[in-house]
Design a protein around this nucleic acid. Sequence first.
RNA 1: GGCCCCAUCGUCUAGCCCGGUUAGGACAGAAGCCUCUCAAGCUUCAGGCAGGGGUUCAAAUCCCCUUGGGGUCACCA
Length: 502
Amino acid sequence: MFAFQQTHSCLEAEGRHMATITMPTTPARTRIAPSPTGDPHVGTAYIALFNKALAVRSKGQFLLRIEDTDRERYVEGSEKMIFEALRWLSLDYDEGPDVGGPHAPYRQSERSAIYKKAVDDLLSRKQAYRCFCTAARLEQMRSDMKARKEQPGYDRTCRKLSEDDARAKLAEGVACVVRLAVPLEGQTAFEDGLRGKTVFENRTIDDQVLLKSDGLPKYHLANVVDDHEMRITHVIRAEEWITSTPKHVLLYRAFGWEAPAFCHMPLLRNKDKSKISKRKNPTSLIWYRDEGFLPEALVNFLGLMGYSMSDQREIFTKEEFIADFDISRVGTTGPVFDLQKLEHVNGEWIQKRISLDDFVRRISAHWKGKYDEALVRKLAPLIQPRIKKLKEWSDYADSFFFGCPDYKTEELSGKRTPAEAAAILDRTIALVAGAPSFEHKALEEAAKAAAAEANMKPRDFLAAVFVAVTGKPVAPPLFDSMEILGRDETLARLRKARAKLA
RNA sequence: GGCCCCAUCGUCUAGCCCGGUUAGGACAGAAGCCUCUCAAGCUUCAGGCAGGGGUUCAAAUCCCCUUGGGGUCACCA
């Protein structure tokens, strides 16, 4: 039903980057299924991008499902942040909790009846069984196994329970979970769309808990039931799920359902190559937004992690990425999430890919009106080519809005003596006071002439002036700054600086 | 530790499937040019096929082993 081509050689192919499926020729339905357990995660956006790409490319649908079956880890407000973050990145979904859709509800906590029915079905066909073991017993069992150096896993005590015994315990009201009756022998294999065939020995697969004693499903159950009910055709998820895939395959089989295609993306990594984590790397999408990364740039960078464009372009829009997208170009090696490269990509976007007007809009939005709009407009062309993150705007702009910071004498005099710097400032004050035009070109010519008169190179002459006017050694160009500041303010600053050197 | 995944410059990667390249690009680094600071731009430099066996006239590319890294082993997802 959800057919996709498998290449004939896929079973023998062992080389790397060996995608075993081709792009679907029928509409694919994909999904992202985050848990609302905290700040929206950069990995969620990463996986969402690839799922979205496949859906759009195949003219299918991309949906959002909230996996909120863990009451312990549930964080209030997290779900809303997920919605907002995905929209911020333009990774919007065709179906989801806040947009609805034909398979609603899209929140697992609201689908209990569906899981209950599914589990009853499994139970009645002996594909699953009730387990009455207490947490304490399980813990004891595990530590015993560990002491004996055995592989940990449920010892299947309750699987041997007679139907009558189980019924009796149930009647007594003993708390229980439902476990999947995993075949004791044989193998379970699946074809990973990116990696080829992967085989697991069934004896290494635990009798997974499907339904918790609180009546809520565990991930494995909910995930399989929902993907089936929601007609998901391709599951693109992170590599960490590979080892649970055979459990899912077994579940599909137990239900008698056809499994979707699985593609396991490489995990985003910290610098030390471990799975990306907030202790070692910023992972919150909120952080990236607050830092002044453009959503376009973040998506662009995420695309670079795990994919390479067919023409090797590194700066591209989401649309360009999707247009190029081909499963066979998706990588399998875990990419280190390099903030420096992200900053480079963001810089390319800020400096070259957005218009001046757009830049102004984004600065205003990022700083929430902290800066006067008219002045932002004047300054924007000077600052846009100089920053890599919206957050850096303040470094260049503040002295135009909030006054000149106090001068550091060392910065003012620079490589010259304070007396020499003072002389230069005196000359500049006279020049600025008498300048017929306060247009930056005219100022520049006049200043350079003065430098020549003083028998100095422009850069030497202007060093002190630069700091005097802009307040710091890193700022927009001097003469443009003067023009924007105006004659009075420029003179005031020069005099204040001169006084500092007296 | 068992099982599973992965392996080209420090990092992201092209090349691998369909063996023959001076192994290409980007970020970061170094040097220089340009220059009113900082950016940008331009020109250079440095840096890699994890190791070992095969197969072959020829291996980054195909096969095997080793090593290394990662993931996973919950009434979390």
